[in-house]
């Protein structure tokens, strides 16, 4: 034991010399707000801050926005379509490459497995709320110069330099669409398993998004794999790096692990019910159901 005061040591010394702390000698900290009571008499009473006569004292204040008769400002302009169709617009909250590299450096995310939205949400770092039109991860280029990890990542939106940064390090990137129901499930899989429902099928992208996800340039999950290989090669030439050969990589299987377009989780098929308490999976036997889920 040295002379350095450690956590609580000084207080221990003080407490040992002071009387026993009980219910009778506790006090709140200085400056804590007190509940304001209604004033009575000369102490805030009488007119209670309302002044004399007028609408203020008579509790007959004009409604906010009222302009004593003329057409008020908030009613002058008929149409202000600032939020026109806002409920149909998708949002992709950003996740930077710097954040991703920090997560990998601090061992908060496992690089030995494919990274998808579920893995990112499980770290607790990414703020994602499907109920307010968030549709997934937008991988941004902040920290692109120092990104050195080899990952298999699946995001919902990204840009060309980011794809180049990931492929340069020998990794793979895919952009995939998830419908809102699937997003809720991905965000909190355990909560979904508690419901006892079968894993649903993922829905295909809407009309305005399908072009993005079928384009090999965006590494869309619905694009032709051959076209994607070609685009990888083209991008390497554009950004001036030698494209690492995936086939010779010892992690080839992990880097090429992809989900079926109707699949939500890696390795778990739609139609299955997961009982994570008893660690069993319930699978339907009915042929019609099986056909439906395999479509």
């Amino acid at each position: 034991m040295g002379l350095k005061p450690k956590m609580g040591d000084l207080t221990v010394q003080m407490l040992r010399a002071l009387p026993r702390i009980g219910l009778y000698n506790l006090k709140p900290i200085l400056g804590m707000p007190k509940l304001s009571k209604r004033g009575r008499g000369q102490h805030g009473g009488d007119k209670h801050g309302c002044g004399n006569k007028g609408s203020g004292q008579r509790q007959n204040i004009m409604r906010p926005g009222y302009e004593t008769g003329n057409q008020p400002f908030y009613l002058l302009f008929g149409n202000e379509p600032y939020y026109y169709r806002h409920h149909l617009r998708r949002q992709y909250p950003p996740l930077s490459l710097l954040q991703l590299q920090t997560l990998i450096d601090t061992d908060r995310i496992d690089v030995d497995r494919p990274i998808d939205l579920a893995a990112i949400c499980a770290t607790g770092v990414y703020r994602f709320f499907p109920n307010i039109k968030h549709f997934g991860i937008n991988l941004t280029d902040e920290g692109i110069d120092n990104f050195k990890a080899k990952v298999n990542i699946e995001v919902q939106w990204t840009s060309e330099p980011v794809i180049a940064a990931i492929e340069r390090n020998g990794g793979t990137i895919t952009t995939a669409y998830y419908d809102p129901h699937s997003l809720f499930i991905l965000k909190d899989p355990l909560k979904f398993f508690e419901r006892g429902e079968a894993i649903p099928r993922r829905m295909i992208p809407p009309q305005d998004a399908i072009m993005f996800y079928t384009d090999a340039k965006n590494r869309g999950y619905l694009a032709d794999p051959e076209k994607i290989s070609w685009e990888r090669f083209v991008l390497a030439q554009k950004y001036g790096y030698t494209l690492p050969k995936l086939e010779e990589d010892p992690d080839y299987e992990m880097l090429t692990e992809r989900k079926d377009p109707r699949q939500i989780f890696y390795g778990l098929e739609p139609g299955w019910v997961i009982n994570h308490h008893e660690k069993v999976i319930l699978k339907p036997k009915d042929n019609e159901l099986r056909e439906y889920y395999q479509q």
């Binding site: 609580g8 000084l10 207080t11 219910l23 506790l26 006090k27 709140p28 900290i29």
Partner: peptide, 14 residues
């Protein structure tokens, strides 16, 4: 062995 927060204890009792 924490440095006790008497104000927090008061809050808990309250």
């Amino acid at each position: 062995g924490v440095g006790p927060r008497i104000d927090m204890i008061h809050l808990n009792v309250k």
